[in-house]
Amino acid sequence: MKEETELIKQKLKDLARRCYQKNTYMFSDFLTLNQQAVFHSLKKEISYVDFSLWGGVPGCERQMVRFGSLEQLGFLEDFPISCITVKPLQRKFSEDLTHRDFLGALMNLGIDRCVIGDIILREGVGYMICQDKIADYIADSLDRVRHTSVTCSVEKEMPSQAEPQLKEEILVVSAPRCDSIVAKAYQMSRNQSLLLFQSRKIFVNGQQYENNSGMLNVKDVVSVRGHGKFIYSGILQETKKGRFRVKIEKYV
């Protein structure tokens, strides 16, 4: 694990250095939440270069780092990201496909996971975010997901169906602490939520978050590995019994 972390650090620092020296944009692969946490730990070391993160659509878990900016380089370059829309050839004969099915189909093509971003499912259709360089190959090669025959199309502009869908929820918690809100949001005990913090499975705005008693800020995006993600919208009111009504928006 330590060796992998050091390797990621070196790759990211090298991209930052090349951007600065060559006066051109440099892009990372799609980073997991853990890898993004590693990136955030490097901010002081690479403060000499501008950067931004993007995953194709708002709220993506896997994101790419772009080193460079319009202000720094004098020109703008888009993230090299495409979306592949994967539809069953015959919807009525389609299986109930899962995220794992789509990912497995890509792995069977011999594709590295790092060039694939989020995979979004909407009503039996898959939207695979990927790097531009691999998009045509996937579209030409992918003709089956599990036992379902599919057709693929490459789109540079993200389809509206791939945009995040949010469900508003009102929670009543004993205290507006991160662990209380996570526990209530995913119907678990406080001890269970504490284990998630201790296992480093909680991320706030892409950064690892270990302070279970910490207070969230409005618009913070909280990712809970293995459970989901939500946007914290703040405290609505304090009840007569001293509890708090808070609002979140869950990604669905």
Rank of each mutant, 00 (worst) to 15 (best):
M158A: 09
N217G: 01
E168L: 05
P176D: 12
V154I: 13
E163Y: 15
F203H: 10
G228V: 10
D179N: 05
S233T: 05
Q208W: 08
M188I: 15
V145T: 03
E157D: 11
G228C: 05
L216N: 00
N212Y: 14
E163K: 06
G214K: 02
Y186K: 02
S141Q: 11
L195H: 11
S180R: 02
E155R: 11
L171Y: 04
I181L: 05
R177Y: 13
Q165V: 14
S149W: 07
V224D: 04
S213T: 07
R144W: 03
Q187G: 00
L195N: 14
S153V: 15
L142V: 03
I202S: 07
E155M: 12
L166K: 01
V173T: 06
A185V: 09
S199K: 10
A175R: 07
E157R: 04
P164W: 12
R177F: 11
N211C: 02
D179E: 08
N217I: 03
S233E: 14
K167Y: 03
S160A: 14
S149H: 09
D179Q: 02
A175N: 10
K156L: 11
Y209L: 08
A183N: 09
Y209V: 05
L236I: 14
N211V: 11
A175F: 11
F230N: 00
K167V: 15
N191P: 00
M188S: 06
L142F: 06
E157I: 14
I202V: 15
V182Y: 04
R225K: 15
G228Y: 09
Y232T: 01
G214V: 08
P164F: 10
I181N: 01
Y232A: 01
I181S: 02
S153F: 13
R146Q: 06
K219Y: 06
Q187M: 05
V221D: 03
R200M: 07
R190H: 12
S153I: 15
I235A: 01
R225V: 12
E210T: 14
Q208H: 06
V154K: 05
K184I: 02
E210F: 06
Q187D: 10
P159L: 13
I170R: 03
Q192N: 13
V173Y: 08
S213M: 14
S174G: 13
T148R: 05
Y232K: 00
M158F: 15
N217R: 09
S141R: 07
E210I: 15
D143P: 00
V221C: 12
E163V: 02
Q161Y: 12
Y232Q: 01
Q208G: 11
L195S: 13
G226D: 04
K219Q: 04
H147Y: 11
K229R: 09
G214E: 08
H147F: 12
F203W: 07
K219T: 00
Q161V: 15
S193N: 07
G226A: 07
L171I: 04
V172G: 00
V204A: 10
K167I: 15
D143A: 04
L171V: 04
L142M: 10
K184S: 14
G228S: 03
Q161C: 05
L196M: 10
Q208R: 12
C178M: 15
I170L: 11
Q187H: 09
V173P: 00
C178Y: 03
Q207E: 15
E157S: 07
L166S: 00
M215S: 09
G206V: 07
R146T: 01
T148W: 12
A162H: 02
S160Q: 12
D220R: 02
P176T: 14
C178N: 06
D220E: 11
E169G: 00
L171P: 01
S153P: 03
